[in-house]
Design a protein around this nucleic acid. Structure first.
Length: 432
RNA sequence: GUGGCCGUAGCUCAGUUUGGUAGAGCACUGGAUUGUGGCUCCGGUUGUCGCGGGUUCGAGCCCCGUCGGUCACCCCA
């Protein structure tokens, strides 16, 4: 191999290096813990699925299916697709394992990468991480409210500020069909003034015109009929109870009749949480979800009502307050000369065997350099090995905070380090 | 996918106007302190100036292309 030109990561797909990982871990742990507290268990499904799964569930005409999927032909002629979202796979697994026959209500969560071939931008990537929930078997509306409330609780516990919860109801599929025609009839007279994109949408999907960002489109839509006025009695009751429950739970929200979202399978409850911090730019949808009562049946399963949501982890991370990335080590082993390296390696093993976090730099650097590095790594103590001490059967134990050091015998080193650590421990006694 | 802007050291950036020997701070490292960290001082290492082509005696700078990033649109998490 003589070509030195480096290979780069695929466009829109990113590495996360160890320094950035603590934020990810904190987010993932908070999500898992919250999900567990609300009764959700983790499900893991393949990253690759048969292409028809997404075409049938998300909808042929949607942007995701029509232009954003990574699809390829497997050896032979199977069409496979890298999952662009999580719900379809979860429903497939739910049906495939006949889970409905085992329990009336199933609450699942998932966490993993999704793939969409879009133009990358801040907060939008071709491989991105989503965490999501799916609840099968409960027609709501209390479970709908619970799910929304749970996300809000999660975000606020993470310190995400300035969010807004948008809620809407799409009603039944029939209602949606009727509304589509009503809206089209309303917009038709204004066609000439609509943006080019919206003229197209007037034919393909008039609902999408509602959330166009074109000022003229918005102006026209301001007077458009609301889908909430077309809901039938049952849908209306469902929506009213949802808003009542949210209010009772103390979750702030705004009813937004223009919220439509881009997946075909939604029915009744629809919601989105938007971040308002400047870090997010135009990618301000932190999470979105809704009810998909007909989907399980459409994918060959029983008629089970369901609701789910997903949040984009990269976006949450952008909205998360910055925190100092404090590193800490219990002990760093320093050698005065390379002849001590073997002894240092042995000492490091015994420190780690004792459950302590310990590091040593045995590349032959100067002591100044080794100590500077110990400082930078946040070492609480430094253990110095040198020939002079070795001759006396001791090591130097340095307390980095007190800037003080003393002789300690080999047998006492670990206990001495622990004593230093105990001095920092809170009164209620964090264990180590 | 469409349009705008930006790519100079590991990081943050100056240098581009008027083409003429690639710079600073941070970081890393050696020393001042014959084996001791946070401050200070002195020294040192690191660049295919994103990549390719063109114009020119000469290109980091001008032109074209391309890749990457970013902003808006589109859409979405």
């Amino acid at each position: 191999m003589s070509d030195p030109s480096p290979i780069r990561a695929v466009k829109g797909m990113n590495d996360v290096l160890p320094d950035a990982m603590p934020r990810w871990h904190r987010l993932e742990a908070a999500f898992r813990e919250t999900a567990r507290r609300y009764g959700y268990g983790e499900v893991r499904t393949p990253l690759v699925e048969p292409t028809p799964l997404f075409v049938r569930s998300i909808g042929e005409a949607t942007d995701i299916v029509s232009k954003e999927m990574y699809t390829f032909v497997d050896k032979g002629d199977d069409m496979l697709t890298l999952r662009p979202e999580g719900t379809a796979s979860a429903v497939r697994a739910y049906v495939e394992h006949s889970v409905n026959g085992q329990e009336p209500v199933s609450k699942w969560y998932y966490l993993g990468p999704m793939f969409r071939r879009e133009r990358p931008a801040r907060g939008r990537y071709r491989q991105f991480w989503q965490a999501g929930l799916e609840c099968f078997g409960d027609p709501g509306p209390q479970i709908d409210a619970e799910m929304i409330e749970m996300v809000v609780t999660l975000l606020s516990s993470l310190g995400v500020q300035d969010i807004e919860v948008l809620v809407n109801s799409l009603g039944s599929r029939e209602t949606r069909g009727r509304y589509r025609e009503t809206l089209r009839a309303f917009l038709q007279p204004h066609e000439a003034r609509l943006s080019e994109e919206s003229k197209q949408r007037l034919i393909t999907n008039p609902l999408r015109i509602l959330d166009s960002k074109s000022p003229t489109d918005q102006e026209i839509c301001a007077g458009a009929p609301s889908i909430l006025d077309l809901l039938d009695e049952a849908d209306k009751k469902h929506f009213d109870e949802l808003t009542q429950t949210l209010t009772a739970l103390g979750t702030k929200f705004r009813v937004e009749p223009k919220l439509v979202r881009g997946l075909d399978y939604y029915s009744r409850t629809l919601f989105e949480i938007q971040g308002k911090g400047g870090e997010l730019g135009a990618q301000n949808a932190l999470c979105g979800g809704g009810r998909y009562d007909g989907l399980v049946k459409e994918l060959g399963g029983p008629d089970v009502p369901s609701i789910g949501f997903a949040m984009g982890l990269e976006r949450i991370l952008l909205a998360l307050p910055n925190e100092a990335n404090v590193r800490s080590l219990d002990a760093v082993v320093v050698v005065t000369e390379p002849s001590m390296n073997v002894k240092a390696a042995v000492l490091l093993k015994s420190l780690r065997d004792a459950g302590l976090t310990a590091e040593g730099d045995l590349r032959g650097q100067s002591m100044k350099s080794q100590l500077r590095r110990a400082e930078k790594l946040g070492a609480r103590t430094v253990i110095i090995l040198g020939p002079a001490e070795e001759a006396r059967g001791v090591v130097q134990l340095k307390d980095m905070r007190a800037r003080h050091q003393e002789d300690v015998t080999h047998a006492e080193v670990i206990a001495a380090v622990r004593t230093r650590l105990a001095m920092d421990a809170p009164i209620d006694g964090a264990t180590r």
